[in-house]
C-alpha cells in the first residue's frame, strides 16, 4: 500500500472528493503509534481501545481546522496524551484513588496480564517505569520507546525542552536504580 505524506493526506482530506477515505488512510498510518503510546500509559487493552477511538474521532472533528504550524503526528500524540490523562483522572475520581494506587494497579496488571509478552528483565523494566510519576512516565516512554526528539516532545506536551531533558534523565536514573535494586 502506498504511504502518503502527511501533506498529501491533509490535501486529500480538505480538497479531495472523499475526505472519509483520506481520514481512513491517516488512521491506518498512525493507529499503531497512537495505540502503543496510549497503551504504555493505560496498560489495559480495552481501555486503550476506547481512548484510541476517541482520539481519532476528536482528530476527525478537528482536522479541518488543523493549522500546519505543527506536525500532524505530534498533534495526534497531543490529543492521545490528553485523552489518556483524562481517562486516568476519571479512573482515579471514580474509585477515589490516589495516583500511587492507580500505578500499583497498573503494575499488578503488567504482572498478571496474559497479553504481555517478554522475559523477566523486560517485565521488570515495565514495572520500573510504572514506579515513575505519571508525567515523568509519559516523557520517558516518548523518548525511550518512540525515540522522539525533545523538540517534538515539546510540541506534544507543551513543555520546554529543558524540563523534558531533566525529567527524562531523572526517570532513566530512577529506572536504572530500580533495575539494580530489585
Amino acid at each position: 500500500m502506498t504511504e502518503y505524506s502527511d501533506g498529501e493526506l491533509l490535501e486529500q482530506f480538505r480538497n479531495g472528493d472523499n475526505p472519509n477515505y483520506a481520514f481512513n488512510l491517516l488512521v491506518k498510518k498512525y493507529q499503531q503509534k497512537v495505540y502503543y503510546h496510549v497503551r504504555r500509559i493505560i496498560i489495559d487493552h480495552d481501555d486503550t481501545n476506547d481512548v484510541v477511538q476517541n482520539t481519532f474521532i476528536k482528530a476527525w472533528k478537528g482536522l479541518s481546522n488543523f493549522r500546519e504550524d505543527a506536525q500532524l503526528f505530534t498533534w495526534l500524540y497531543r490529543i492521545a496524551t490528553n485523552e489518556a490523562l483524562t481517562f486516568l483522572k476519571k479512573k482515579r475520581t471514580a474509585f477515589f484513588l490516589p495516583i500511587v494506587n492507580v500505578e500499583r494497579h497498573l503494575s499488578e496488571k503488567v504482572e498478571s496480564d496474559p497479553a504481555m509478552s517478554g522475559d523477566a528483565i523486560e517485565l521488570k523494566l515495565q514495572k520500573a517505569i510504572l514506579t515513575l510519576p505519571e508525567k515523568q512516565r509519559i516523557v520517558f516512554n516518548l523518548r525511550y520507546y518512540d525515540e522522539m526528539k525533545y523538540e517534538e516532545m515539546s510540541e506534544v506536551l507543551g513543555t520546554s525542552v529543558g524540563a523534558l531533558k531533566a525529567s527524562y534523565h531523572i526517570a532513566a536514573q530512577k529506572i536504572e536504580k530500580y533495575m539494580i535494586g530489585n
Binding site: 472533528k61 488543523f66 504550524d69 498533534w75 497531543r78 483524562t86 506536551l157 513543555t159 520546554s160
Partner: peptide, 26 residues
C-alpha cells in the same frame, strides 16, 4: 476535556504537563 470536541491544536491544553508540573515531580 472529554465532552468538548477538539477544534484546533491550541485548544488541546495539556495543563497537567506544564513545566512546573514536570519540575514538581523532581
Amino acid at each position: 476535556e472529554v465532552s468538548q470536541p477538539v477544534i484546533s491544536y491550541q485548544d488541546i491544553h495539556l495543563t497537567e504537563l506544564e513545566d512546573q508540573v514536570i519540575y514538581d515531580e523532581i
